[in-house]
């Protein structure tokens, strides 16, 4: 039993990172009805820059690099819109492309090396289970970020405008909402959050150029598993993903454990098909 509890706790801590990656996806979906699949790449570039420069300045430069990458994505988004593209899937595919470009850039500039920041954080013991301070710190950061985002999206004028822009861009324009500016802002905020996730990964485990896809998919899973519209659900989604992964690693054979998190997403999604309609905003 104590083992089970330990896996759950460790999974929950690991899930904090996924929540941080899921939050920007949820935010963008709430604003522009599309997904930014480059978040894993923003995390990578932030970690690469931070590891290279080092220290607080490195962390700041890493966040700036992530936001710069996200700014490129927002320009691609606006460019595609100007070309008459309105389908969210096109922006999502474009973000996959950008992700590949960032990955190649990191490989070209830094080579295939891993980015590792070495230090061992102190740990606390909880009923015989040793928990790393860095992990608890990650969870705390994720929780704070997600709660702030939740309040902004659900209860602020800015949040109302973001949601309005997503569901009815023409209506939002008629209501004098600066739709495009808002959406670009959300891309940038996404870059910042993904960059933050990248730094936490760097300080907790280390990262290399192969990471973006896995990070993006875990974040995506965390974002959709309990409904994509809300940042608060991202936190629970991230924790659920982390716990599912930890339990699978602990108890299942290796072949099964790799696919378990995604089976878990499929299972949850298939259990609540009605919710997806409510999510689209129509009258059922």
């Amino acid at each position: 039993m104590i083992h089970f509890v330990e896996y759950v706790l460790r999974g929950a801590l690991a899930g904090a990172i996924y929540a941080l990656l899921a939050a920007p996806m949820s935010l963008l979906f709430a604003t522009a009805r599309t997904i930014d699949f480059a978040v894993g790449a923003y995390a990578l570039i932030a970690a690469a820059v931070a590891a290279t420069i080092g220290g607080i300045a490195g962390a700041e430069a890493g966040l700036a690099a992530a936001m710069l990458s996200a700014a490129i994505m927002s320009l691609i988004f606006v460019g595609l819109k100007r070309l008459g593209c309105e389908d969210g899937i096109v922006f999502a595919l474009a973000s996959f492309g950008l992700s590949a470009v960032i990955e190649s850039f990191v490989l070209w500039y830094w080579g295939a090396r891993s980015f590792i920041v070495s230090y061992v954080a102190a740990s606390w013991s909880l009923g015989g289970i040793r928990l790393d301070q860095q992990g608890l710190f990650n969870l705390l950061i994720a929780a704070i970020v997600v709660v702030i985002l939740h309040v902004v999206v659900r209860h602020s004028s800015l949040g109302r405008m973001m949601r309005a822009s997503a569901v009815n861009a023409v209506g939002a324009t008629l209501a004098a909402i600066p739709v495009e500016g808002l959406q670009m802002g959300v891309y940038l905020a996404g870059g910042l959050l993904a960059g933050l996730a990248g730094l936490l990964v760097l300080y907790s485990a280390g990262i290399d150029f192969t990471a973006p896809l896995g990070l993006t998919l875990s974040g995506f899973g965390a974002a959709i598993v309990f409904g994509v519209g809300s940042p608060l659900r991202c936190l629970f989604g991230g924790i659920a993903m982390g716990v599912a992964q930890a339990l699978a690693s602990g108890y299942l054979s290796e072949a099964l454990s790799a696919m378990t998190p995604f089976l878990f997403i499929l299972l949850v999604l298939s259990m609540r098909p009605a919710d997806t309609e409510a999510l689209a905003g129509g009258r059922p």
Partner: peptide
């Protein structure tokens, strides 16, 4: 215990070997 290239947290795997 195993992990994909992109795993960010290996404490569960380490726990499994410890147990």
């Amino acid at each position: 215990a195993s992990a994909p290239y992109t795993a960010t947290d290996l404490t569960a795997q380490a726990t499994k070997l410890r147990n």
